[in-house]
Design a protein around this nucleic acid. Structure first.
Length: 216
DNA sequence: GAACCGATATCT
DNA sequence: GATATCGGTTCC
């Protein structure tokens, strides 16, 4: 049966298994890796994920927004897997995560980059006249291409009730073509190789180490 | 490729 | 008051 990538009525994707998103804490990096090749659709654009980062649960990962427990911003992370966690950063950008793990765990996978496989015209309208590979190359750019922002926070990515929909790979990713390395721009736990990407994929964003800002 | 810096929500 | 899961620009 072909996979429906445009937005279906609620409950339509009953034959897609999302239960693996609710994994034990130790398997969150494996969940992130498995999300490569999955597709995310919103507002007429579909993106094939080429780069993701894992963030472990509360108390386990000093780089996680949820590390110190729930706050008004991070509350959604403590809910069920499959919800979108959106946050605003650097006074300018929205970034998007898929909540993973069991309720109360607060693990998440950051959607860092992907290839636009549907709706390129629309994505270009939102992103400007950039090369195709740059349309969703970077976590904030990915959101812009999808036309999503604050309103996506706390919506489901798995049941069609929100703007976002996560669907299985049209083309599977060969496990041997997945690379791993440190997460981008994080100060804490910079040695943990929880960033995963499709080796050689031109839509993967470049690595940047965390740069402490000079005060003054 | 590396360095710089804007803009502001969030938490301490 | 410090920090930030970034991106665009500028400068080698």
């Amino acid at each position: 049966m072909p996979v429906l990538r445009s937005r279906p009525p609620p409950g339509f994707l009953v034959n897609v298994d999302y239960s693996w998103l609710t994994a034990p804490a130790a398997q969150i990096p494996a969940v992130a890796r498995s999300l490569l090749g999955w597709e995310v659709s919103a507002n007429g654009v579909t993106i094939r994920l080429s780069e993701v980062e894992a963030y472990a649960g509360t108390g386990e990962d000093p780089a996680s927004h949820a590390h110190r427990g729930p706050t008004p911003r991070t509350g959604i992370m403590f809910g069920p897997a499959g919800m979108a966690y959106a946050y605003f950063v650097f006074g300018a950008h929205w970034c998007f995560n898929i909540v993973c793990g069991a309720e109360g765990e607060a693990a998440a996978v950051l959607l860092r980059a992907g290839a636009v496989v549907e709706g390129a015209e629309l994505a270009r309208k939102r992103r400007g006249d950039v090369p195709d590979r740059d349309l969703a190359r970077g976590p904030a750019r990915l959101g812009v291409a999808l036309g999503i922002g604050a309103e996506a926070n706390g919506t489901s990515m798995v049941d069609g009730t929100g703007p976002l929909l996560l669907t299985p790979p049209t083309r599977p990713v060969d496990p041997s073509s997945v690379s791993a390395g440190p997460r981008v721009g994080v100060a804490a736990a910079h040695d943990v190789p929880w960033r995963f990407w499709i080796t050689g994929d031109p839509t993967v964003s470049g690595y940047r180490r965390h740069v402490p800002r000079r005060r003054g």
